[in-house]
Amino acid sequence: MKFAFFPGCVSRGGCPELYPAAKKVCAQLGIELDELQDRGATCTGAGVLQEKNQFLGDVLNARTFAIAEGLGLPIMVICSTCQGVMSQANRRLKTNPDYLAKVNEQLSEEGLEYKGTASPRHLLWVMVEDIGIDVLKTYVRRPLSGLRLAPFYGCYIVRPSDDLEFKLYRDREDSLERVMEALGAEPVDFPGKTRCCGFPILTINEKNSVQMVANHTASAKQLGADALVTPCPLCHLNLDGYQPSAMRQTQQDINIPIIHLPQLVGLAMGFDPKELGLSRHIISTKKVLSKIQVAV
């Protein structure tokens, strides 16, 4: 199994622990990766660049898709935001031939053309749809039994569900819970599961952003979760990095660790927590690790 790998900016920037963890897990799963950013692919625009200039954003993503087409490989991402932004751009490009032609005009100078065959998929979906839950189970060396985990998807991997082809791929709706169960953990259903972490307004309205962090982390904790698990590094930035602010703002003790999806899979595969960067979180992961008898 080989993918054109799009790690996104944050997995090597704000959440540097994610990138190596994802690479380790992929290697273990037998997924070969050809790195798109080494081949000149750019940031997706994250929806932010699109606020200013959506066409430009679509050109950038079409460029990435064209590069992957050139490699003859399907695209894999490890970030909910990358997934969403790419899927939205892809829908616009695929459903409107005139628009696609206009975009390709911009790419032609570089000798690129997007033919409309890309279908970017998050590692989460690859595990559920390409590898399969039953096969995934066979990789488990250290079952996560006893762990109660709250899934936190991140907006862009669940909405708009049409762009993400939820009707075509029914398993996407509860993919995260399925993976947790396959690894031996118990998913905790909680109201924040598909809500917004607040990251996009962090620099604009920090109070609101931090309040969202407080609401989700506190409610997960109240419902007995040991940690939140997310396939989105941007959610991680906010839920982990701003949890101390959330505790201060709402005057409560929360302290619930936020684990990247690849870290969780890596843990179950038997990797050392340090290799997975679990010591590099703002909210300590010690308690949750000790619950499965692992020391940091």
């Binding site: 900016c9 950013q37 000149g40 750019t42 940031c43 932010v48 660049l49 200013k52």
Partner: peptide
């Protein structure tokens, strides 16, 4: 935020979060 974001991607191809 949108402006700077766009400029940074233009400058280096991806986001400089610092």
């Amino acid at each position: 935020h949108a402006d700077v974001f766009s400029d940074l991607v233009e400058d280096s191809g991806w986001l400089d979060e610092l």
